[in-house]
Design a protein around this nucleic acid. Structure first.
Lengths: 332, 332
DNA sequence: CTCGCTTGAAGAAACGTTTCTTCAATTAGG
DNA sequence: CCTAATTGAAGAAACGTTTCTTCAAGCGAG
């Protein structure tokens, strides 16, 4: 420690008895200098423990190579709670670091962001909300931004996502009988992945002459969910499509759902997959997202943008379909 | 987008027909300016979309408020795989952000770090290796560093950790009968937490006249572990203390261990806890680490250092003890 | 009328680099 | 021996701010 003043290039120059230009040239291997001078300067710099100031460098180069990583929260979940996010952070960071860029973890709060005085070369926003304020903040500050998923009320941003629409459509193709009555259960804020997934399901129903109805839970509490589930059951649905795995598990916990599902009179599907679905009492088919690949591609898009290339339009990644057939089907 | 040159304070000054000083004063609320001028300048700045350069600011202020977060890998595990690390990253980041500092995710690789030209105000290193090269790198660059756990071959760094020694000692007090024959099984690189834990166990044995023997596996593969376990069993140990939860689970999978443990003739303990231990076939007591608190305190220590206060010596956090009594004891 | 105080605003230095330009001294060539 | 080219090294500008200092104009008081 000991607040020793930082050693600058001027200190080295003075100590070596040369000009700052000479020091700069000697250390960077540029300019026209005899080896003798070069070595003398290098030795002096070493002795003094000189390190060039990254900030001064950044001032010249117009950028330090910092990229933000920002995750819009879903409810009260934090990075730790959602493996999907942790995977994205890990892989995006890795990609950035390999390119010599440093990933900065950003809060999804305009107030906190405003306090951070850091020169971002770009930022990735994961799961933006509708009318996302952070996205607006980035636009105002002219920070390049790529999102994973999209802000449903915004046209302009560059985004990537799993191809949830195509994924769900394909899952229906494999797991659902034509003519089925579909019930979609949504929960929480309107998210682009859910919208796309429902669009995919709708395309399937249009092709196969099935019906589709959407149910929205009032809240994430068990009572609201129970209420919606009983509505769904009354509606005579053959197939329930849940917005995400946690919701699917809660729906699966309903005794009537479990009874009908085990008898193959009901099929439970989820728009997102997770290891926990494996453990559910009844089979739950799902579309599996690919956060690692998604993160890598998003980071690469960001790198392209930083290097001045025009970003491509939206990119949609094909997904894996996880079919967990009902016991009845297995027996057949 | 569109590589439009950045708007500088000079542009605003020219557009408003004033000097840069006036612009700076007008926008920061300092200086002596009539409201009229102030507003005119503010309007011009707004119109042009002027944003002060964070780098230029940083150059004056000697620092941008960037703190590194670096995790020394254990084997091939990444951030995603270890909940402990994800928790640390989450909570440390939160603490930094609340203090207006921006957390940067750093690789545990000197080569990659050297390519990153960023002005770090400090860094946290989690689980440093013995003779950790990254720690040396930080020292050379004069980057303030706090570690979670410590480099066993280094005296000088400021570090915090769970109090593994006291924790294990207390666990023994509660779970182990005096006179027991203790076998400690270690795996992988020598880590400070394991060294401390073994020291705690040794203190307990010295007080209670028990014996302690240490076994090191050759590698992380099942064969090496089996070999060590059979040695341990031959040694007639009553108590096995495993270096971490994953190792404990593998040891628990040994049939002979399971047999003896279910009969209360053997007690299996682990230096680290995890939810998976709950699911093990036999009871495994453990000391539970507190990554959230640890991360918060470490981040606060770092903030203190950045603010110029002398860091305290090592800080050890009291741990929770998770006793999972053998079935025999439950019956009694 | 002039001195001194206040007000409004500009100039300049400093933060730490790199790079472009300049310049003197040395060497080679005719 | 004089000119031209080369070599070694320094000067200065630029990157974008903030802040300390300076300065002129206006105004009231003596």
């Amino acid at each position: 420690m000991s607040a020793t003043r930082k050693i600058t290039i001027r200190d080295v120059a003075a100590a070596a008895g040369v000009s700052v230009t000479t020091v700069s040239d000697a250390l960077s291997g540029k300019g026209r200098l005899p080896d003798e001078t070069r070595q003398k300067v290098q030795a002096t710099a070493e002795r003094l423990g000189y390190r060039p100031s990254a900030i001064a460098l950044g001032l010249r180069e117009r950028g330090l190579g910092l990229v933000g990583l920002c995750i819009a929260p879903a409810g009260n979940a934090a990075l730790t709670d959602v493996g999907y996010w942790a995977t994205i952070v890990t892989y995006a960071s890795q990609t950035f670091l390999s390119a010599g860029l440093a990933p900065v973890l950003l809060p999804h709060s305009v107030d906190m962001l405003a306090k951070l005085k850091i020169p971002l070369d770009g930022a990735i926003l994961v799961d933006p909300l509708v009318d996302d304020a952070v996205l607006t903040f980035f636009e105002k500050r002219r920070v390049r931004c790529v999102t994973i998923g999209r802000d449903l009320n915004r046209e302009s941003t560059c985004w990537l996502d799993d191809d949830n629409g195509e994924g769900v459509e394909r899952m229906f193709e494999q797991a659902v009988a034509p003519g089925s009555r579909i019930a979609v259960v949504t929960i929480g804020q309107r998210k682009s992945y859910a919208v796309d997934a429902i669009a995919g399901a709708t395309r399937w129903t249009e092709r196969h002459g099935s019906s589709i109805a959407t149910f929205q839970t009032e809240g994430p509490d068990d009572r609201s969910i129970e209420a919606v589930v009983s509505l769904v059951l009354q509606s005579g649905a053959d197939v329930i499509l849940a917005q995400h795995d946690r919701l699917a598990l809660r729906i699966a916990a309903n005794p009537e759902v479990a009874r009908r599902a085990s008898g193959a009179g009901l099929r439970l599907l989820s728009i997102t997959d997770s290891p926990e679905l494996e453990q559910a009492g009844i089979p739950i088919s799902a579309v599996r997202q690919r956060p690692a690949l998604l993160a890598e591609m998003t980071a690469k898009t960001m790198i392209e943008m930083i290097n001045g290339r025009q970003p491509a339009g939206p990119v949609l990644l094909p997904m894996d379909i996880i079919i967990r057939p009902p016991a009845a089907a297995l027996r057949a």
